[in-house]
């Protein structure tokens, strides 16, 4: 792998920037483009562009995808549970989210300890960075829950999960990693690609599904 590094990347590494960090940063525009494509052309909404992107990175930073997905599901579960439990209190938005965050934090702690006791050391040693990122998911989830209801929030969360998993596999695809290290300028291609996506005015795949009945009838 060393032999195929581009001189630019080599000089970066010599100054002390870790290779993993370089790969992550080079992957960022690719994942972002993937998300833009999925939104505009396929019609997968998820929680905007930022949340799936950062969850992808959280997945990359946890030790293996399954712990990341497990954390994600714990957070969703607690989000649903707490909404149900906090309803009778009729709290204002921020205090409600604060309580939610507290409970999520406790649950995650419990989850990590549980992982430790059943000898899943990989889980217990997950660094704080991905955990904190995942917790930010709570606010996104709650605000959608309030605005659009439980069903929409769950659908969007599920879509976010799917995108993040896809992003995870793309970002950990070694062929892509090697190509990017050898030719980092490749990421510039995401700009014209995004310009095309940004001008795309056709129906989204999801709209073909949504409008299938009238597409047959008109």
């Amino acid at each position: 792998m060393e032999t195929t590094l581009s001189p630019l990347i080599q000089s970066f590494i010599l100054t002390g920037v870790p290779v993993e960090t370089i790969i992550l940063i080079l992957m960022l525009p690719i994942i972002a483009t993937l998300i833009a494509f999925l939104r505009q052309v396929v019609g997968i909404k998820a929680f905007g562009i930022y949340t799936p992107l950062i969850i992808t990175f959280a997945f990359l930073a946890t030790n293996g995808l399954r712990y990341g997905v497990a954390l994600f599901l714990v957070i969703l579960f607690v989000g649903m549970l707490m909404r149900f439990m906090l309803k009778p209190f009729r709290l204002l938005y921020l205090p409600r989210v604060a309580i939610m965050l507290t409970v999520v934090a406790l649950f995650i702690l419990f989850f990590l300890v549980l992982g430790g006791t059943v000898q899943r050391t990989g889980l217990a040693s997950v660094s704080i960075f991905p955990i904190v990122i995942m917790i930010t998911l709570v606010e996104k989830f709650v605000s959608v829950q309030i605005e659009k209801g439980d069903k929409t929030a769950l659908i969007l969360a599920f879509e976010t999960l799917i995108i993040s998993i896809a992003g995870f596999y793309i970002a950990s695809w070694s062929f892509l990693q090697i190509s990017l290290l050898a030719h980092p300028w490749l990421i510039l291609f995401t700009i014209p690609v995004n310009i095309i996506i940004g001008k795309w005015t056709g129906l989204r795949v999801s709209e073909y599904i949504r409008f299938r009945n009238i597409l047959k009838k008109i």
């Binding site: 019609g43 005015t201 056709g202 129906l203 989204r204 409008f211 597409l215 047959k216």
Partner: peptide, 14 residues
């Protein structure tokens, strides 16, 4: 015809 009819509909992007 199904996809051709797509041109008659207004989607989010457009």
């Amino acid at each position: 015809q199904f996809f051709k009819n797509g041109q008659k509909l207004l989607g989010m992007n457009a």
